[in-house]
């Protein structure tokens, strides 16, 4: 099957002005490759600062103007240029951001989910989508500051599925949620994938990623260090890369082991 998203050797660099007129380049993503198939949940796992969120921003062309993207980004088989991204963005190509700060604090939930469209069909669809995620019609009338963390996440998911998404990029959708709520949130992603969408789940939480993902892509310092199927990782076949191994061992159920010497060596 043709992957819905194909990222090959992606790099993102920032240029900034240093002292005087000198320009310094800061490399945030160096060499990132991954694919997402329709119906698949691919999890990108890595520590903070590994460039995970920038991957999402690069897909949506919302990186700051001083950034530069190189490499290949294919959406549905064709290059995802800024021009070409404009059309599916918000419809079949959707972003689920981290939390409540991505909602306009001065606007009620309803209009935000509807993206400002007021025709009855859209309003009805909004109500239906909110209901699917356990949110009553009264939520439409609330402002973001009145939502709990879990409600805000569900509202953001509702925003994403207003139309028929083909690729869903979820950028750290669970921090600040308790384990059960986080599990429910990622469970929604599994459902969406089962209905045929490709899901790119960006997280630092390996156990959570393992619970829903088909495939784990491990990122470190802007590079893909490992791509492994969730089954393979869980079956004890053993992660191939030392960094993945260290992440795996650091999980509470796997011994909670701190990184050992070989990792330190590898990192430097």
């Amino acid at each position: 099957m043709e992957p819905i998203l194909n990222v090959a050797h992606l790099s993102v660099t920032f240029s900034r002005y240093g002292r005087g007129f000198s320009r310094t380049k800061l490399s945030a993503i160096e060499d990132l490759s991954l694919t997402v198939d329709p119906g698949q949940v691919a999890a990108v796992v890595g520590s903070s600062g590994s460039g995970k969120s920038l991957l999402a921003h690069a897909i949506f062309h919302i990186l700051p103007p001083n950034s530069r993207v190189e490499g290949t980004l294919l959406y549905d088989g064709a290059p995802l240029t800024a021009h070409r991204a404009a059309e599916p963005r918000g419809r079949e190509l959707v972003l689920i951001p981290q939390g409540v700060t991505y909602l306009d604090p001065m606007m009620k939930v309803g209009p935000q989910v509807c993206r400002g469209r007021r025709d009855p069909a859209v309003r009805a669809r909004c109500r239906e989508v909110l209901k699917r995620y356990g949110l009553g019609p009264d939520v439409e009338d609330l402002y973001p500051f009145q939502l709990s963390g879990g409600m805000a996440r569900r509202v953001l998911i509702a925003c994403a599925v207003m139309e028929r998404p083909r690729l869903i990029v979820a950028d750290e959708p669970t921090p600040g949620l308790d384990a059960r709520t986080a599990q429910r949130v990622v469970g929604h992603f599994r459902e969406l994938a089962d209905r045929g969408a490709g899901v790119l789940l960006i997280t630092h939480d390996l156990p959570l990623a393992l619970s829903v993902a088909d495939k784990i892509v491990v990122m470190h310092a802007g590079q893909t260090v490992d791509e492994i199927s969730a089954d393979q990782l869980q079956s004890g076949y053993g992660p191939s890369h030392p960094y993945t191994r260290a992440l795996w061992r650091a999980m509470p159920q796997n011994g909670f082991a701190p990184p050992s010497g070989d990792l330190e060596e590898w990192l430097t």
């Binding site: 921003h57 949506f60 919302i62 404009a86 963005r89 918000g90 419809r91 959707v94 972003l95 951001p97 981290q98 700060t101 991505y102 909602l103 306009d104 604090p105 001065m106 606007m107 993206r115 400002g116 925003c159």
Partner: peptide
């Protein structure tokens, strides 16, 4: 620079200044 402007752009919204910027600059 706020997150909600970024999100509005990621959702392909067109009237961002009118819908979000003015609303939040008003106060």
């Amino acid at each position: 620079e706020r997150d909600y402007i970024l999100f509005a752009r990621a959702r392909g919204e067109t009237a961002i200044v009118r819908r979000h910027v003015l609303r939040n600059v008003a106060l």
